[in-house]
């Protein structure tokens, strides 16, 4: 039984590493892709998947595999930015709760409720539109809407920890507020924050794709999953299934990988399963 548990932990570490590695490779390939790979060639327009073009080509003769990779890396950049911003805001909200100031805490709680009460998609659309669309508008829109649940989590966690007996006891043993923050609070908060960040990532990517799909996000010349999918709809009735299916599947795979990475980290960092 003991050995089986030891293996499970190793398995989890390996799984998390593989997920992270695949994500990193996909991102790297997309970033360092030479511009020629994305150029169209009308002689090869509308080809189904083959060894030469894994995902086939679109109606302009552009290789869909490379286009998808490029699109995924753009999506990942948006996802990473949104995760970082939401983590930053969540920490601020947590600190507001930890400071003991009722006004600061109430203000953060009110703002969180306000943002959460508006459907994400509508809010992202409005912000992105107001900032002139494009990558910047989309980034700002998604970053501004995805911090709420993580902020709530961190705030709740800080409030719970502040009331813990062992924190009160630490204070009575003469430990300073900073010492308690570093030794008692952060070891609880960091894993939550990390897991929350990784789990925000797929959420943000899906929003990026759906807003681009609706035509309010990235410009049409930009290779992005949402753009590829919305273009593909026009050719679906002509029997071109690959521009919709394969990039869509790649997006789903990316989201699943990030989600798996998040849940692996969660299990590894939680003391209830840390020693298994």
């Amino acid at each position: 039984m003991r050995r089986r548990n030891g293996n499970r932990r190793t398995e989890l570490v390996l799984l998390a590493a593989v997920c992270a590695a695949v994500l990193a490779v996909a991102y790297g390939l997309g970033i360092f892709l030479p511009a020629e790979a994305l150029e169209g060639n009308f002689l090869q327009a509308g080809q189904p998947p083959s060894l030469e073009h894994f995902f086939g080509t679109d109606s302009l003769g552009r290789d869909l595999f490379w286009r998808t990779l490029k699109g995924l890396s753009v999506s990942m950049a948006v996802g990473i930015a949104a995760s970082l911003v939401s983590a930053g805001v969540a920490v601020l909200a947590g600190l507001a709760a930890a400071s003991g100031s009722k006004i600061a805490d109430a203000a953060v709680g009110w703002l969180t409720d306000l943002v959460m009460s508006v459907p994400h998609t509508v809010l992202v659309l409005l912000i992105s539109f107001a900032l002139g669309r494009g990558l910047l508008g989309l980034l700002a829109g998604i970053a501004a809407t995805h911090w709420c649940s993580l902020a709530r989590l961190v705030r709740g966690e800080v409030l719970k920890l502040r009331a813990c007996h062992y924190v009160a006891l630490s204070r009575r043993l003469g430990k300073s507020g900073g010492w308690i923050l570093i030794h008692h609070l952060l070891p609880h908060l960091l894993p939550q924050l990390l897991v929350g960040m990784v789990l925000t990532f797929p959420h943000a990517i899906l929003h990026e794709a759906s807003i681009s799909f609706l035509g309010y996000g990235l410009p049409p010349e930009q290779p992005a999953i949402g753009i590829i999918l919305s273009e593909s709809l026009r050719y679906l009735s002509a029997g071109m299934w690959w521009p919709a299916l394969l990039p869509g599947a790649a997006l789903v795979l990316l989201v699943l990988l990030a989600d798996k990475l998040g849940s692996c980290l969660e299990r590894l960092l939680d003391p209830a399963s840390a020693q298994e």
Binding site: C164, H165, P271
Partner: peptide, 14 residues
């Protein structure tokens, strides 16, 4: 110094 009734609440689980 106080020794609490419930030791499991008086130690940091992490």
């Amino acid at each position: 110094q106080l020794i609490w009734q419930h030791p499991e609440e008086a130690v940091n689980p992490r």
